[in-house]
């Protein structure tokens, strides 16, 4: 294979492999932010979800139960965030950071005994069965969670556009005054949106520990949960765009290692920073000064 071809295959493979946790966390963050609340704590949720999923898979022998457990753990931690933030004057940005600490702390504390054991992993779909080249075959061996994430993105898109509940979330997110006038229970809807969003982030964590890289240890997350906040802005709070953002981010993440295999070996730190540079450039190029971001929920605290 030529160098260009190699890097292209690696980036497609990387997009399919690395993007899934970004997809789930950014979808979760998108749901939460559409209700008018930000959750930086999804980093902690991701780590806790990964640990709980791994431990559950190890004890029950069923990785899918692990995914469910990761989602439940995420929802619980998200509910704490949502609950505390519904108290008057509590700042959701700061609380998110505290939740991030609490989540990683609890995950590391209870995760110690699970670093050594090997837990059953999620299966993969061999979509590359037709290909003869092993890299293609391997690149197309995709986790079902990726497709579940895709389905979740479409479902969330439909949820926001076509359901009463989705409309309520949007109203609560865009204008608390309007929501109050309609008699909506703002706190309850935001609590729901935060817990559900964190459940998705928990599934993202389960992907990390049960699919790729498929192992539990304390260095597992490298900031995927935090970056979700950036991805959601990037995606303009649109679930379908979250898919594109996650894929771009995953592909950019695969760039560093694959460039080294084709002989571009200098400055690998800079290639590793590629996803962040891409994010920043796209943000700077697409927003208009002096105007709120298109698609941004009006109640969002970071949005003024």
């Amino acid at each position: 294979m030529g160098a260009l071809e190699t890097v292209t295959v690696a980036m497609v493979a990387g997009a399919l492999r690395v993007s899934t946790p970004f997809l789930f966390v950014s979808l979760g963050e998108c749901l939460t932010e559409r209700s008018g609340r930000i959750n930086l704590g999804n980093e902690g949720v991701l780590v806790l979800g990964a640990m709980v999923a791994y431990a559950t898979s190890y004890h029950t022998g069923n990785p899918w139960l692990g995914v469910v457990a990761g989602a439940i753990a995420g929802a619980l931690l998200g509910a704490v965030h949502g609950g505390v933030c519904s108290l008057a004057r509590v700042n959701d940005v700061a609380m998110g950071i505290a939740i991030m600490l609490a989540g990683t702390g609890i995950a590391f504390f209870f995760g110690k005994p699970y670093v050594q054991p090997v837990a059953p992993q999620l299966p993969r779909l061999p979509l590359g069965f037709w290909a003869s080249a092993p890299p293609v075959k391997s690149a197309l061996s995709v986790s079902p969670l990726f497709f579940i994430g895709l389905a979740a993105a479409f479902a969330m898109h439909w949820f926001f556009r076509a359901t009463r509940m989705g409309l309520r979330v949007r109203i609560v997110g865009d204008s608390a005054d309007a929501a109050r006038a309609l008699g909506l229970s703002i706190d309850r809807i935001r609590l729901f949106a935060t817990a559900a969003g964190s459940a998705l982030a928990g599934i993202g964590g389960a992907f990390l520990s049960l699919s790729y890289p498929g192992s539990w240890n304390e260095g597992l997350s490298s900031g995927q949960g935090l970056m979700a906040v950036a991805l959601v802005v990037f995606a303009r709070w649109n679930p379908l765009n979250c898919v594109i953002a996650a894929l771009i981010f995953g592909a950019a993440g695969a760039l560093g290692p694959s460039l080294q295999t084709v002989g571009v070996t200098k400055g690998y730190y800079l290639f590793y920073a590629a996803p962040y540079v891409v994010t920043l450039v796209i943000l700077a190029a697409t927003v208009r000064p002096g105007r709120a971001l298109r698609g941004m929920p009006g109640e969002l605290s970071i949005g003024r």
Binding site: T6, V9, A10, A13, G14, R17, V18, P134, P135, S138, A139, L208, Y212, P213, G214, S215, N217, G219, L220, S222, G253, A254, G256, P257, S258, Q260, T261, T265, Y268, Y269, Y272
Partner: peptide
């Protein structure tokens, strides 16, 4: 021997990506 530097001592996702891109290279 193809070497890939991940840049840090503990970077699970990058280590997995590096291993995969080595595998892709044969």
């Amino acid at each position: 021997t193809q070497v890939i530097f991940t840049g840090d001592w503990s970077m699970p996702v990058k280590e997995a990506e590096a291993t995969n891109s080595l595998a892709d290279q044969g």
